[in-house]
Design a protein around this nucleic acid. Structure first.
Lengths: 342, 342
DNA sequence: TTGTAGGCGTTATCAC
DNA sequence: GTGATAACGCCTACAA
């Protein structure tokens, strides 16, 4: 009857005590042999390793997290992974995290900052060691929760004036501003603007601000019937172009905040035999691989997608390692890629 | 000096005891008021809620996981999120998981089953409640580890004959088989085949098998110089088409295992003024939104991308809830979408 | 409906 | 280099 530790609610799995027993050492020595092998004598180490194999021991990180007060978990919040460059960021983040023996906890908000707040609460409850947020639009509670927890945090894809903690991204405002000026230099004067939804999405708002600032500086026509906002897909871009041309057949250029929208508009022009760039110039944002393969090839804004995620991971890891951060807001820059559509 | 519980290594944050003290109840009552509110009197409940707010209490799920031996964590393994329908699956998975108050732990393998094994070990160590795997190609150890842990598991995007536990997907073999027959009915006789890399990726192998079976049944020419394997992007599809046409200018149809490859090939045909489908028929796989927008529109195989992830989540949740599963391997089906390229 | 006792499996701390 | 002890913060089991 009476086994070694019969009481309570055991989980069936071999634990550190069992391994310790097999190796003829104490539990804490097993812990050290696995976590910090060089603080244990070679013989002890090999006896422990043997015992681990024999017992089929898989350490319980839940227990170790509770005890050490560290989870080696980074939580990330994205709006969505569908049709989204967020997937590229996360790929970069995940890759660097795994290389450093951290794991990724992922949540999607469907573009709602209230949902984001719920996720952040859940991530704090799980005691994630650091947090990755897409963009800089958050509820006040999200911000204070993270700050009060003292959690390393990085906001991604934009350059907030007042980051919660750190940020990596590009100037969305600047990128579109430059693009409008580029179009102006190439003789365009009636410039329309397509963005995806601006709800809880400051990246889109910043891009729209870049457009407006350039239009104002260049003394071009500023009109609300030149600005369209839509869900991010090809079909909506085509539909919006249809509406735009009905009210404003005089438009000679179209700045889009995504390659998807730009390509949707380009295809619609081709269906209507509107020459691009002859009658209509079109520009995108992101530089998807597709951009260089459509004909005419898409003039667009290139951003370092994988790198943004990877650098975000690195910044979090540096902070977790106690290193000092030189720049809290890291601008990875954009580049206008002139191709054929503008 | 001597505070309530001065000893040890406290984490600074308000704990359940502090909340209990504020509410004038025992810690276990706080636990119940939050986890199962209906098992607590309304007054007690509201006193607890007040105390929670006052203390800024965020429950420690690490501790609760350790104690309850449940993490409410589902771990998912994908090859990559870049340029991949895996992102759509994960979006579906994540959405359903969050609706049910589970969180998602995500890892990427870069198409290596050894990396997958490492991730699975890590996920087991974190005591994830269930696991999601992409495909059915795993190391023996991965399979036995999951089986021995008795963990609910779902393999996604294929229909394994011997699933580790459950599976959701489509018949990759059947889909390509049908597509080749479709092309044959439309008079094509020299049919080439483009797939992405087959390393540790049985979906690609199954699709190639579907191609080979149809070719054999139809008594068409089977030749290794009709089969190409490449990294999944537009540029490689174009390059492979170039090579194919050099050795086999007589080819009249091209079956691709991805819309990306098909569109890459289509664009290359257009650059070379090869009429599609006049001289060359092209078919894809996935039915990305782009497929219906390119001109000529792409004939392809549609699969329920978001649903595959969502159903995978549902199967795991059902099993976790102790419900019986009617079908361990769920076939969500494909559909050939005839458009203009074939 | 509420509370008491004790353990979940590990690691921090301090001693040897 | 190794070990004894006591948490980590919560929840299961059982009792009242």
């Amino acid at each position: 009857m009476s086994e070694q530790s019969s009481g309570g609610r055991r989980t069936g799995r071999a634990g550190i005590r069992e391994v310790a027993r097999l190796a003829g050492v104490s539990p804490i020595t097993v812990s050290r042999a696995l976590a910090t092998p060089d603080r244990v004598s070679p013989e002890t180490r090999s006896r422990v390793v043997e015992a681990v194999t024999a017992a089929g021991y898989i350490p319980n990180r839940v227990a170790s997290s509770l005890s050490s007060n560290r989870t080696r978990l980074v939580a990330a919040v994205v709006p969505t992974l569908r049709n989204s460059i967020a997937a590229d960021f996360i790929d970069g983040l995940s890759t660097v995290l795994h290389e450093n023996n951290y794991q990724l906890l992922l949540g999607n908000t469907d573009f709602s900052k209230e949902t984001e707040e719920q996720l952040v609460v859940e991530f704090l409850a799980r005691r994630a060691d650091a947090i990755y947020l897409t963009g800089s639009t958050h509820t006040d509670r999200t911000r204070s929760l993270i700050r009060e927890a003292g959690l390393p945090a990085v906001e991604v894809a934009t350059l907030p004036g007042d980051p919660i903690d750190m940020a990596v991204g590009i100037s969305n405002e600047g990128a579109v501003y430059e693009m409008v000026k580029y179009l102006h230099r190439r003789g365009r004067r009636k410039i329309a603007f397509f963005s995806s939804l601006t709800t809880d999405n400051e990246r889109q708002i910043e891009r729209q601000n870049g457009y407006k600032r350039a239009i104002a500086e260049l003394r071009l026509e500023a009109s609300s019937n030149l600005i369209y906002e839509m869900t991010l897909d090809l079909a909506n871009a085509a539909r919006s172009l249809d509406r735009l041309l009905k009210t404003r057949p005089d438009v000679d250029a179209l700045v889009c905040t995504s390659d998807i929208l730009a390509i949707g508009a380009l295809f619609e022009c081709q269906r209507r035999d509107i020459p691009v760039p002859g009658k209509m110039a079109i520009t995108g944002f992101e530089d998807l691989e597709l951009a260089q393969h459509v004909r005419p090839a898409l003039t667009t804004i290139q951003i370092p997608r994988f790198d943004i995620g990877a650098r975000a991971a690195q910044m979090l890891l540096d902070r977790l390692a106690g290193k000092s951060i030189d720049r809290k807001v890291l601008d990875l820059g954009f580049k206008i890629i002139p191709r054929e559509t503008a």
